[in-house]
Design a protein around this nucleic acid. Structure first.
Lengths: 342, 342
DNA sequence: GTGAAAGCGCTAACAA
DNA sequence: TTGTTAGCGCTTTCAC
């Protein structure tokens, strides 16, 4: 094994120049069918593989796509990351995951020029920053923003239908008989769109459409939407003596905590309280009871994201005023945590 | 923004040569305190950052560590990946995740020379291949094998205490009164050590030590230890009319399915059946009931893995006959799926 | 203590 | 259709 095979070895073996080998390997035109065959044969015989690092140095690109997510604990982002990486690899790139910790400082640091420089492109799922702040960061690579509807900006934007999904969930609860529906993870609408404020808006829209009033005491925050946060939110609500007969939880992870809290409080699901989550994590189908939830169709989101991003990366990223907004559509998955239609 | 700042720009700004800049930046000796300060000032002023790709080309290394895992669906490997990546970055590398799909072919493909070549080192969690097969693959980079005890081989090996953990779990069930303990995910011991056969061995050892006979009909396979597999295994056991008053499930993911199946069958946990899992996934603390499980101490495993691997990578990987074996120790986390001590 | 030369493996641009 | 030259940004070697 006398060292790694390089392009010049192949060139020598095939009796041509490096350049011709390069052309053949990259499928560029301008090589006779016969030369082409000789080169390919030499490549096979020697087991040659291009040195990606050298190619990158030459191209001035790193081949890395940065994925900036709040965390990786739950299945949501882990699954997204796996999916995006598969798609990226199919096109010669790879995904590097960066965790922002869901904090403002973490996000600001993650999009700083030093941190971003190594990447050819960025997929960013902001939870604290808005579009204006992101565009003010001076990012010089193509960016696809993820997961929320914000004011139009210079970035491509792929989002799930947060409002529509929340309307679906809330309407479902109302139709199945709930009238005092707690919103775990709800946020006041301060003009800034976020996952939480959008889903909160859907919750309100559904109430309005059904003519059911919203009791503001039922709208409770859940910090970072972890299982623990869900658990604590419901426990607090109960301790405060606020009665409810339904819960719309902003994420499935938090819904798992809600279910657990309800069990601890001796409340039966769905008999006493109906519960609907959001995300359609695989786990939901194995909870006791199985969780009714909103499926935001993450797989097609991942495809749209990579498609948009790599298009700009491959085209040398002329960031012009043609930012695209894509909204994927949500549907409800009905399981055991809500009652049969009455 | 006239292009990216490079080392020669810094050299020019500081009035020295590229070489001196390189030396200062890499903390190499042989630069006067004054020159050093001038260079650092220029670096700061210009916001210079080394071009990792060029450095890698020069060094003949990619900076990438391959992490070969069966899948990323559950929290186990996702968490491990996040942890390993954090540790790798702290030392100038990064982790690329490759999924083998837990199949023989998937693993063989993942360790083929073409696939491995881009990596400076490999962390491999094999589920089908044994050490002999891995060493026969002709891998030319340092490798740390993960998670199972196999015959001694040329690779560093970090493993959790599968047997000890299984003994802990099974003994716990016996002590709390179970006598017919189903083993979900159990595998016959065919001489090849794997996560499943080792934990199965611990299950048998604990029975022997307590003088409780094992009923072979209670040892059932669970395919790939997913939630679904756990669900189906228990359902099959029940349909076959095999009675049991305890279940040791080989993974928490599968245990979640077991709990769900038990609920569907009308069996109460822990009153009718006690359940113990393995892995200590975060989810376990929110299931209904909360899952008693074995904690294999994954965080210290991750640290040992990266430490061993990067030591060899940094030293130019002279694969000599000094392979290290590290076993981390397990402990049991007692929650609600088992009864209080009688 | 500092710098000039050479080259890592690849490909754009230009010649032949 | 094929080859030559030059250079991506960095660091090893060796000379000063």
């Amino acid at each position: 094994m006398g060292g790694v095979v390089k392009m010049s070895d192949v060139a020598h073996e095939a009796g041509v120049s490096k350049m011709t080998v390069s052309n053949v390997i990259n499928g560029r035109p301008g090589a006779s069918e016969e030369t082409r065959a000789r080169v390919l044969a030499a490549v096979a015989r020697l087991g040659y593989q291009v040195n990606a690092t050298a190619r990158r140095l030459r191209a001035g690109r790193s081949g890395a796509i940065g994925l900036l997510v709040p965390h990786l604990d739950g299945p949501y982002y882990a699954h997204l990351a796996a999916r995006l990486d598969t798609l990226a690899r199919a096109r010669g790139h790879h995904v590097i995951i960066e965790r922002t910790g869901a904090s403002r400082d973490g996000e600001i640091a993650a999009i700083s020029p030093e941190r971003v420089r190594p990447y050819d492109g960025l997929v960013f799922s902001p939870v604290q920053l808005d579009t204006a702040e992101v565009s003010g960061a001076g990012i010089e690579v193509p960016v696809v923003l993820l997961g929320e509807r914000r004011l139009a900006g210079p970035f491509d934007h792929v989002m799930m239908d947060n409002i529509g999904g929340a309307v679906l969930a809330t309407t479902h609860l109302i139709e199945r008989g709930s009238r005092r529906i707690a919103l775990v993870g709800g946020r006041p609408d301060e003009g800034v769109d976020s996952m939480a404020t959008l889903r909160t808006r859907g919750y309100r829209q559904a109430h309005a459409a059904a003519g059911v009033p919203v009791n503001e005491r039922l709208v409770v925050d859940a910090d970072s939407f972890t299982t623990r946060d869900g658990y604590e939110a419901v426990t607090r609500l109960h301790q405060a003596g606020v009665g409810f007969d339904g819960v719309f939880v902003l994420t499935d992870a938090a819904a798992m905590g809600v279910l657990r809290a309800l069990a601890d409080l001796g409340l039966r699901v769905p008999d006493d309280v109906q519960v609907v989550g959001f995300d359609n994590d695989d786990e939901g189908d194995y909870l006791v009871p199985r969780l009714t939830t909103v499926d935001p169709d993450n797989d097609s989101m991942a495809e749209r994201i990579m498609e948009l991003l790599l298009r700009r990366v491959d085209e040398g990223a002329p960031r012009v005023g043609d930012a695209v907004e894509v909204v994927t559509s949500a549907r409800i998955v009905v399981r055991e945590s809500t009652r049969p239609r009455t």
